[in-house]
């Protein structure tokens, strides 16, 4: 059973002060002022962020990351400069189910992540060091994102159209690994779950879906689980990989 990590979540979203917006290749790292109300939750849990001006209209799910000197998140530069721009950001969370890290060790666990899923691995790397990470990026100018993913041992990153699934199959063939923790865009999850199942290795997958609320109210975040449509924000985002194959 993966990721049954439940936190009582504050009902009211709160305003967090934006301290800095730094370019991270083609992406942006937004630093926010540490605040006891901004609880990170478990790795894999997420927050709904929105602009207090209402410019963005819908809030968006984002994975907050721990920085050496505070808290932050990574978004594309366009969002940082438009929808999300301003001195403050509204934060609701932590929400959803995170990774179950009880069986995690550098010897038997393998991490796979692509795109914004890499920010989740930054959280895991702070709790369990030296785990091997197979990383994928959509484009070369996203490489600086990996600077934020510390504590893990990163393979040579794969840049699209290279796939993370090729080195994953090779790694699992060694027989060393007992579980895979993965995060990334739609498509990656099911592919990773299939390869893990073929090798008899357990997997926990952090899914992505467009979300309007993040707490089960809108039914917008449909993902295919257990052979039917379920809500990513409450059944996930972290799910047992086997559920993607049913």
């Amino acid at each position: 059973m993966s990721g049954v990590v439940e936190h009582a979540t504050r009902l009211g979203p709160h305003l967090a002060r934006v301290v800095a917006v730094e370019p991270l290749g083609g992406l942006a790292l937004v630093r926010i002022e540490p605040d006891p109300r901004t609880e990170l939750g478990a790795p894999g849990q997420f927050h709904m962020l929105s602009n207090p001006t209402g410019r963005d209209y819908l809030s968006r799910p984002v994975g907050l990351i721990q920085l050496d000197d505070g808290v932050g998140f990574v978004v594309d530069q366009e969002s940082a400069a438009s929808d999300m721009a301003g001195p403050e950001i509204t934060v609701l969370g932590p929400l959803g189910r995170g990774f179950d890290l009880s069986e995690t060790s550098a010897e038997t666990t393998l991490l796979v992540a692509a795109g914004f899923g890499l920010t989740v691995m930054a959280r895991i790397g702070r709790l369990h060091t030296r785990i091997r990470l197979i990383a994928g990026l959509r484009q070369a100018d996203h490489l600086p994102l990996l600077e934020q993913v510390t504590g893990v041992t990163i393979d040579a990153p794969r840049i699209a159209p290279d796939l993370v699934t090729d080195p994953l199959s090779e790694a699992l063939a060694s027989g060393q690994y007992r579980q895979v923790l993965a995060a990334g865009p739609t498509g990656l999850g099911a592919a990773v779950a299939r390869i893990c199942a073929d090798h008899g290795v357990a997997s926990q997958i952090a899914l992505e879906a467009p979300m309007a609320c993040g707490f089960g109210a809108c039914n917008g975040c449909a993902v295919q689980l257990d052979g039917t449509w379920k809500r990513c924000c409450i059944d996930g985002p972290v799910v047992d990989g086997a559920r993607l194959l049913a």
């Binding site: 209209y57 467009p210 039914n219 449909a222 449509w229």
Partner: peptide, 23 residues
């Protein structure tokens, strides 16, 4: 009812578009 296949929501200017399908 399982509801409609994804995608079910999309942003619109000052609004939300949805096609949820009564799950």
């Amino acid at each position: 009812r399982a509801g409609n296949p994804a995608p079910r929501i999309a942003p619109s200017r000052q609004g939300l578009l949805n096609s949820i399908g009564l799950p």
